[in-house]
Computed example of a mutant assay.
Amino acid sequence: MKTTVLVIEDNEEICGNIAEILQISGYNVLTAPDGKSGVEKALKHKPNLVVCDIMMPELDGYGVLHVLARHPDTADTPFIFLTAKAEKSDFRKGMGMGADDYLVKPFDGMELLETVATRLRKSEHLKTSFGSQVDDIDAFLDKAGELPDLPNISGERPRKSYKKRDHIFMEGQRPSELYFVIRGEVKTSRMNYDGKELVTGMFREGNFIGYLPLLKDTPYTESAVALQDTEVRVIPKQDFQTLVHTNREVASRFIKILSNNLFETEKRLLELAYQSVRQRVASTLVYLYQQQRVAERPIPLLTVSRKDMAAIVGTALESLNRTLADFRDEHAISLTEGGIKILELGKLERISH
């Protein structure tokens, strides 16, 4: 079966040229003259890759990416922006939203074909169908770690054993890892206003536990207790953040596994995972500030290294530095050789939501 590429471009001549080059190279090509019809065709035909102009009527390229990235059927479809502007703001906005690549007009045929082929190869690397056994999870994580933009996946995924009635995590605790049940049974529950236990979930072999607090970067709102002798696979928080925030295709496939392919659950997780880099950096700054204040340390600066902060955020160091520079220009923070000083905590809190 031929690989299908959807080209969304309002300039009829440019659209025709791109389609002709791709067809000559053996691709099946669909075209759309604006963002609105492009989204409709993408959801109907589910192409293998989308090439999309930024400036268009009806719905611009950013809007197209926003819609497709949040729909489970198209969330992991490689997405290449076309732009006539080589301005930094275009690149920063598009890549921050999760675009996979850029082509700046004018470009030649070979540049187009090489970019399309590269993105399709990376996508194909993750096309294997993974089940819900521990070996399937390990295989997926190992494949993700082979991608060039995910070199920091640790590969350290220890097993932990819990006796009956042992707590795996407790309400109010800050999450530091993701749990995958290998064997046994786990109950999650919370205490209601009059001190009675409210059971919120039952989890068995093949289920993940505790991913929502990791995605939202909030404390656990419930406790997890082993109902029988239980064994779990542990995925460190840093690896989890890398999986859901660094590569859009990896994030989408990982979320399919987390959600067991339930449409509504998957859609909700995608919304959480695709928060902008700007939101996640702001949230991380607020969290680090609060941690430092709780620890009652007198140092007025956040001294976490940029590399460690980028790992917490789940983004490249360059993206972190650009966002910090934006916050500095907006007078929310100041940057010094010694660290980062929070000037407007309230502003960062508003950005993070």
Rank of each mutant, 00 (worst) to 15 (best):
T242S: 14
D142F: 07
V232R: 01
D34G: 06
S305H: 12
I54G: 05
E197D: 03
A86P: 05
V104Y: 07
S176K: 13
F240R: 03
A224P: 10
G35V: 15
K256T: 15
I340W: 06
K196H: 15
T83A: 13
G26T: 10
K36N: 10
E271S: 13
S89Y: 14
V281M: 07
D308N: 12
P298W: 03
G195E: 13
V64D: 05
K41N: 10
F327I: 08
N152G: 09
L212M: 13
I182F: 06
I168F: 02
L113E: 08
V186N: 03
A332V: 09
G210N: 08
A310K: 05
Y27N: 01
Y220C: 08
V313I: 11
S223L: 15
A295Y: 01
F81V: 00
R204H: 15
C15I: 02
P300G: 03
G210D: 09
A139D: 00
E271D: 14
Q279A: 11
R70D: 03
L258S: 04
L258D: 12
N11Q: 08
V277Y: 13
G206Q: 07
L22A: 05
L147F: 00
N48L: 01
E185N: 09
N260V: 12
E296C: 10
Y62H: 05
L49C: 01
K46L: 11
Y287D: 12
F203L: 06
H125Q: 12
P151F: 04
P33G: 06
D60A: 00
A282R: 11
S89A: 15
A69L: 08
I24E: 15
T265G: 06
Q23H: 05
T4S: 06
L335F: 06
Q292M: 07
Y220M: 08
S305N: 06
T77D: 03
